[in-house]
Nucleic acid binder design. Structure first.
Lengths: 246, 246
DNA sequence: CAACCTTTTTGACCTGGATCATAAAAGCGT
DNA sequence: ACGCTTTTATGATCCAGGTCAAAAAGGTTG
């Protein structure tokens, strides 16, 4: 189950796909998917304002979605990890609204929206899955918002780390270690914090022995402690899958 | 065009509906829509954790979507105004994740999701519109997030006021006046600010003669000034409709 | 209209995090 | 391995905004 990124990278529409969608649909999707080769860190996938053509899935690597805030300052809106989709806001606007950039060596695949829509026209299962996918993105976005608004730097970063941990370990990765694909500055920006603050909070976490961190390599020492710190997302009911969007 | 809230309240799927969807679809939707009578301020529409049944549209009034943050403190996640839909996150989770409460005398209508989906099965137009709707919600959510993260109280509230103004005037309402349906505390909470701060910023806006405000009644005196203050949402390309979600 | 309760405003104070500055590490390309 | 650039860490300072407290408006209900 760990070769997920090899087998049906783009097709992991919201985690539980193979069984849910059926082989025929998977085949159709595979046919329309545009597999892009791996690109180097710093490569832009698309730029805000470009006409919307396709939604993208991350196969390997990581993506940041950014906006340029007035002064030209870069503001990170979201990160996208393997198995997640981005560019979805283009559906509404006919243009991409964020610029997306590879954080490391990254491979994405594109699902041209018109074609995707046509396939969906013939497959109710896929339609339902698409709705679920988008709903999940809204949920993620709201969680993020709720976790940031009116909370301390500690809480925000604890939340972010736990969130990244969970999303990274989706394809069966080690659960106690984590290699961050982004800089402290980028991580901070996504939480509305200055890079210096991010760095200091990391130190604090180390001192408290919540994590071990050398550079971008994190080891979780005390998950319970981190969770206590982080904003508790009181998602009632069951555990659910996750998604993201640009 | 101002009796929109009377004619096809629920059906205004993402603003541009009548022409886009066609009369037959409208008729079908009208048939499945559950029109709820107006409820008093403070009435809960649904509670976090309840099983997901329907998505809701606001006909008249206003809704707040809230979460209870650890300590039991209420945190406002979003406001929903006439013409907007909420409860969409339930699609993914099978449960509502926010609690939604009427802020004033409010009428909503419910679109039972299964039925909605069935109608959509027969109408590609509606499918497309639903995708657009959800994409728009993601966009709104991201805008909000970007506008709040790492910006001053002034900027956040200026943004919020302009946003509310725009959304309120959707059905052809006066563009220079605004009756806020929420308290300062609620407005602040949605921006991650303390009520006192919200109040003080309002005073500051008054002194600067950006707005005139007596209680919940706002008059915009200097839109350009407010916009200069607010976080500029560099949405490239065209102007687009708006939406919201719970 | 009076008593009551909620919301808003204002003041005083204090702290979390931004900012500025600089040093120490890491990466990284050659 | 060696510079060079980018990233991270840490210290000092400052201020926006949170918190506590209390008064002043508003609204609501009997």
């Amino acid at each position: 189950m760990q070769d997920q990124s090899e087998v049906s990278p783009c097709l992991a529409l919201d985690a539980a796909t193979p069984e849910v969608l059926g082989d025929d649909v998977i085949e159709r999707l595979r046919a329309i998917a545009v597999q892009h080769g791996a690109v180097a860190a710093g490569t832009r996938i698309f730029r805000a304002g470009e006409p919307f053509r396709a939604i993208y899935g991350v196969r390997i690597g990581a993506i940041k979605a950014i906006r340029y805030d007035g002064t030209g300052e870069e503001q990170v809106v979201a990160f996208h990890l393997p198995g997640e989709f981005f560019g979805l806001t283009g559906i509404h606007s006919d243009h991409y609204v964020n610029t997306t950039v590879a954080l490391e060596r990254t491979a994405v695949c594109g699902l041209p929206y018109q074609r995707l829509f046509h396939v969906a026209n013939e497959h109710p299962r896929l339609r339902r899955q698409l709705m679920r996918l988008m709903s999940g993105v809204i949920l993620t976005e709201q969680d993020q918002y709720a976790a940031m608004a009116g909370h301390t730097a500690d809480a925000r970063l604890a939340f972010l780390l736990l969130d990244l941990r969970e999303r990274m370990s989706r394809g069966g990765a080690p659960q106690d270690r984590l290699r961050l694909p982004m800089t402290r500055a980028e991580l901070g920006s996504s939480a509305g914090l200055a890079p210096e603050t991010t760095s200091r909070v990391f130190q604090q976490f180390r001192r408290r022995e919540l994590i071990e961190a050398s550079g971008r390599n994190i080891r979780f020492l005390d998950l319970a402690g981190l969770r206590r710190l982080a904003v508790p997302l009181t998602h009632p009911g069951h555990g659910t899958g996750r998604t993201t969007a640009a």
